[in-house]
Simulated assay, not measured.
Amino acid sequence: MDELVREWTAQLLDPGNAAALVVGAVALVLVLNRSTWPLLRNVVTIAHEGGHAVVALLSGRKLNGIRLHSDTSGLTVSTGRSSGPGMVLTLLAGYPAVSLLGLGGAWLVAADLAQVMLWVAIGLLVVMLLAIRNAYGVLSVLVTGGVLVAVSWLATPAWQALCCALFSWFLLFGGLRPIGELRRKRSRGRAPDSDADQLARLTGVPAAMWLLCWYLIGVVALLLGARWLLLMPQV
């Protein structure tokens, strides 16, 4: 552990990591700021509901549609057994999906594959658009995709790498904040049908344990993603 800490400290002090650190700080401000978070949280909701949808399909359920709302909430509807592994995995997938997408993006940035990351993200949004069932959801996906297309077409490779690093940092940080928000809502009795509560009813495992599981996944993804981003090619 001491060796790992020393290695990370050396990376942090390396001037070549200045850009990654600055971009990470910007992403953290965007997540924590009360003015920017309500708008940018739509991106997190897209990733969250996309996670539900992908796992629903992989587990053999039929995807009926996805709705994204202006209050940054979302709903993914699928049909199949109302209990069992498929339903459990579908409910489980939403919150970790955000952090895991950020982790995947961090790996691609570190591997100098920012262009690949952009087109993978755009492709996923195009596929997701086919499942959106409300106007605000269509708008949210189109705006997010439009920004990524603009970066891919107009930005230089160096700026593409920085933008992709920013996006990855944002998902890594942004994957954690909604878990804390859900915990506070549940403490006030305002989220009786949250993913965690539905999982608790299906499995008998307390909702708090699911929140802890999601939080640990998010923290591990953040630490690993941060390490990769600090190794991103210098721009």
Rank of each mutant, 00 (worst) to 15 (best):
G174I: 05
K185L: 13
L108F: 06
W107N: 01
G175L: 01
V141I: 11
P192W: 09
A97Y: 04
G189S: 11
L130A: 15
D197T: 12
Q115R: 12
G84Q: 09
G105A: 07
R81Y: 13
F173G: 00
L162M: 11
I179Q: 08
I132T: 12
V98W: 02
C163M: 13
L89W: 09
Y136V: 07
L172Y: 01
L129F: 15
V143C: 07
R183I: 13
P157N: 09
G104C: 04
P157D: 06
M128Q: 14
L103Y: 02
S99L: 05
K185T: 06
P157L: 08
L89Y: 03
R186S: 09
G102R: 00
T144G: 14
L108P: 04
G174A: 04
M87N: 13
L162F: 02
S78Y: 11
L118G: 03
Y136S: 10
V116R: 14
D193Q: 14
Q160K: 12
R183S: 12
L182K: 12
A158F: 03
P178Y: 00
A165S: 12
A161N: 11
A110L: 06
L118R: 06
C164I: 00
I122C: 09
V141W: 06
G145S: 07
Q115E: 13
L171M: 15
R184M: 14
R188S: 13
V116C: 10
S82T: 14
L118E: 02
M128N: 05
P192L: 08
L124G: 13
W153Q: 13
V120H: 05
S152W: 00
G104D: 01
L108T: 04
M128V: 05
R133H: 12
G86V: 04
M117S: 12
P85C: 11
W159H: 10
L182T: 14
R81T: 13
G105V: 06
D197A: 15
R81V: 13
R190E: 15
A106L: 00
L91K: 07
L176V: 01
V127T: 09
A131Y: 12
D195Y: 08
G145E: 08
S99R: 06
W169V: 01
A155P: 04
M128P: 02
Y95P: 01
P192S: 07
G84I: 11
V126G: 03
L172K: 03
V138M: 13
S140M: 12
E181M: 14
R184A: 15
L125W: 01
L171E: 02
T79Y: 12
G175S: 03
W119I: 10
S99T: 05
K185P: 05
P157M: 04
Y136E: 09
L108W: 03
P178H: 04
V88W: 02
G175M: 01
L100E: 05
L182Q: 15
P192C: 06
I179M: 09
M87G: 07
W159G: 01
A196D: 08
W169S: 04
L108V: 03
V109S: 02
L129D: 07
V151M: 10
L166A: 13
F170W: 08
V138A: 08
V88N: 03
C163A: 15
G174P: 04
R183N: 10
F167S: 09
L113F: 11
I132W: 07
A131V: 10
I179T: 07
A106I: 00
